[in-house]
């Protein structure tokens, strides 16, 4: 099976000189198509930093990070944007646009390309919202939705463009147990259908059972890879 994410000997530090603080030390990890990998670890272990490097949001300079056959180390902004466009990002906070309805929020993920008409975009977004169980709330603004509903909108937004990779940063952190379980359940179901690879960073052990593989990152080193 093809490797969607292939990280080799990644080192990353914040600051420079005497202030240099290493965050990731010689991290190697690869994720294949349709695989769900869960990364746990205490706060400050470098989980989110790892996620932002793989997602093309942060520039690392030592090692090798190949995502969808593109080398991200020393890459241009354009390459990173291409990777981002094929990545569905789910954030700790839902990070929805306050001024937009659920439907408009989801279709924002489809507006970067001209390949679809407005009607097709809205239909697709609506389909995805129905799939996450929000068929009745499409025209609600985020502030009219509950925490769990918002996170489901955010999942719909991440999945609507059929990304090859889904990166989720503590998606259940602001949810109660039941909405958290529901959210990751939906995420798993939809991702399996589309064959996307999922890298999920969390220290919520209640959702460990959805993963194909669990890694632990501690002080920038992967323990039980």
């Amino acid at each position: 099976m093809s490797k969607i994410i292939d990280v080799r000997h990644l080192n990353f530090s914040f600051g420079s000189g005497e202030m240099e603080r290493p965050v990731l030390k010689d991290v190697s990890l690869s994720i294949e198509k349709s695989e769900i990998v869960l990364m746990t670890g205490p706060s400050g272990s470098g989980k989110t930093t790892f996620l932002t490097i793989v997602g093309g949001l942060r520039q690392a300079s030592y090692g090798s990070v190949t995502v969808l056959d593109r080398q991200l180390i020393g890459s241009t902004e354009q390459v990173k944007i291409q990777v981002r466009q094929q990545t569905g990002y789910i954030f700790q906070q839902h990070n929805l646009l306050k001024a937009l309805t659920a439907l408009q929020n989801v279709s924002m993920a489809l507006e970067m390309h001209d390949t679809m008409t407005e009607r097709q975009r809205l239909d697709k977004a609506a389909e995805m919202l129905i799939a996450v169980g929000l068929g009745d709330h499409m025209n609600h603004k985020p502030e009219q939705l509950s925490g769990g509903q918002r996170q489901r909108v955010s999942i719909a937004r991440a999945l609507v463009g059929h990304p090859k990779i889904i990166l989720a940063d503590e998606p259940t952190a602001s949810l109660d147990k039941q909405s958290g379980q529901e959210a990751v359940g939906i995420l798993k179901k939809l991702a399996k259908e589309s064959g996307a690879a999922i890298l999920l960073v969390t220290h919520d052990y209640r959702i460990v059972d959805i993963a194909d593989r669990v890694l632990e990152l501690e002080d920038g080193v992967i323990r039980n890879a």
Binding site: L57, I81, Y89, F91, Q93, K98, M112
Partner: peptide, 14 residues
């Protein structure tokens, strides 16, 4: 800025 950063993470250009 959080909303803009979110859109950037989704692949929107500066």
């Amino acid at each position: 800025r959080y909303e803009f950063a979110t859109l950037k993470a989704m692949g929107y250009e500066h």
